[in-house]
Design a protein around this nucleic acid. Structure first.
Lengths: 193, 193
DNA sequence: TTAACTTCTTGCCATTTGGCAACCCGCAAA
DNA sequence: TTTGCGGGTTGCCAAATGGCAAGAAGTTAA
């Protein structure tokens, strides 16, 4: 696959010029992750900053009782990486697994830092990605506090329907902060309306 | 107050040398916010990046029903700012209010960006702050999903007892994702143990 | 095709949390 | 001092969500 999508994505923020986008994109290498394979394993340090041109992934961790808890989903045109592990160079508590075949473009921590150092525009881009992720987590946190499980489900269905398309319901359930049993009942109620 | 605490804070990350810390600190200006005054009002753009040497603040937003929801607390040796509004230059949905007299050192968006541009070490520092905030929100999100309200209360009491010291319980309640009534009962149960 | 496995649903009941209203209490304004 | 007000607690009951187990349905592997 040609890296046209990556170049488009870099430009889409309006922080990177077409010329620089092309230059930046040349530092990424093509990467494919097959369905069910892991992009990141807990205990490892996240070393790839991965622009996903196509595919779908799930991030999850285990709580103290050993339950699998979904911490996030990633789809087309998103950057996949675990922020804390990647930037702090610490071992990850999360796993990130491909739920479909995924393809895109990756850059390592070292390369990315080098580019940040030399290219002001790419720094701006990197900050933008970080801030966007932060903001969407804040929004999600607010909905956890203020909305019922059914409202959160309805919101997800509206704003991220692809999640329901690709992820097993039990994984969506923990992402929404409910049990699989409850989500099943919520869907039943919801479908009546 | 001399800016010694700010210099110490900059160095504490091990990302900034003593010399650079001093240099950076000179771009901050002293700032005081009196009890009950606002550091940030919703609808305004957050323009200050504020290192709080001493004091305590609460961030909150209103949900669709008009309820006051606490989104965060800030205490000594933390940087106070609303990430999305500050970096995206957009109007804030949050308010940040001083619950005690607060003093520290502030830098504006323009100045900070200029310093980021010229000082590699300060960029690293800025990223560190952002990543740390992101990581702690992820932790909080996980506890919202996996823990009971009582466990979250116990966790807060253990890791951030100063919050219970300064903030009204009803505000702590919404931060924990429960009603004031429930928190009252949880505390009652908890005190028996 | 069959067998094993996983996911999802459902019934039954327990637990958690919420809503409302009454009351207590401390503080601050008059 | 008196009054009013906001915050916190509590009783009563309702609503939301969870735990468990059984069963249905779909998927994978032999």
């Amino acid at each position: 696959m040609k890296n046209e999508k990556l170049i488009q994505f870099l430009q889409s923020t309006n922080l990177v010029s077409p010329q620089k986008a092309e230059e930046i994109s040349n530092h990424f290498i093509s990467k494919v992750i097959f369905k069910n394979d892991y992009f990141l394993n807990e205990g490892k340090v996240c070393n790839d900053y991965f622009f996903m041109a196509d595919g779908f992934m799930r991030a999850f961790a285990f709580d103290t009782d050993g339950n699998d808890v979904t911490t996030g989903f990633y789809s087309n045109n998103q950057v996949v990486f675990e922020v804390s592990s990647f930037f702090n160079r610490t071992t990850s508590k999360e796993n990130i697994q491909a739920l479909t075949d995924c393809e895109g473009w990756a850059i390592t921590y070292g390369q990315l830092n080098m580019l940040f150092h030399t290219l002001h525009e790419f720094r701006e881009f990197g900050r933008h990605i970080l801030v966007k992720g932060f903001a969407s987590l804040k929004t999600r946190m607010l909905s956890m506090i203020t909305e019922t499980a059914e409202e959160r489900y309805a919101g997800l269905l509206k704003s991220n329907p692809e999640i329901l398309q690709y992820a097993p319901l039990k994984n969506v359930a923990s992402y929404l902060g409910v049990t699989g049993t409850s989500l099943s009942r919520i869907r039943k109620e919801f479908s009546k309306k």
